[in-house]
Amino acid sequence: MSIDWQLAMVTAVRDETPTVRSFTLGLPGWAGHRPGQHIDLRLTAADGYSVERSYSIASEPERAGEVDITVERIPGGEVSPFLHEVVVPGDRLEVRGPIGGYFVWEAGLGGPLLLIAGGSGVVPLMAMARHRARAGSRIPARLLFSSRGPDEIIYRDELDRLAAAGDGFAVAHTLTRQQPPGWTGYARRVDEQMLAEVIEPLGAGVRAYACGPTALVETVANALVRLGLPPDRIRTERFGPTGT
């Protein structure tokens, strides 16, 4: 594996929501990655001060020579405001990776697959969903996605398209703070009852991946164990408190 720092060229930038932006990083020497892995990104100031952050890879491994990362702007942060406000296509960024071999799902691992995301925790799960679609897998898969409001649903249109493809992928949204008129999805924080309803159509042998703020992932992991999932089928990626 390549763990050395390498230079990536930013080749595209696009907004996902008012506070979330995706960056395509061109990596000519990229050895490929597995869905769920992340990269480390390092910024170094002129005086030598440097800071590193980990960002999940959003893109599927079938795309060669480049990866997408999706970054939420954290007010007062050291890295995300720079990425949002300063970085434009043509800039170069130092990255290393891919990193991680635990929070990973590939079609070959099988399913059924349950994905649970809170906010930008959807990013590594999106890599799994995109990979599943690109690989032509028909493994039953469901995403339970918790967002604060309708404008904050990351990848909303693409998730709608993936769910409409008729290949066994379904999405259930919950909006915890603000719901638009006529909203038919869930309107509360993820809880055991919600998980029971989402997991039910998947049947036995489910593999679950949960990513999001620590409090959400904690709730999900405990509830899934109570619902009868063996702990070794539940993989978690806690990214700390909300909004840091």
Binding site: H38, S54, G97, I99, G100, Y102, F103, T236
Partner: peptide
Amino acid sequence: LTVDGSAVGG
């Protein structure tokens, strides 16, 4: 404040 082991993977 805890995160999972992947965070220190790099």
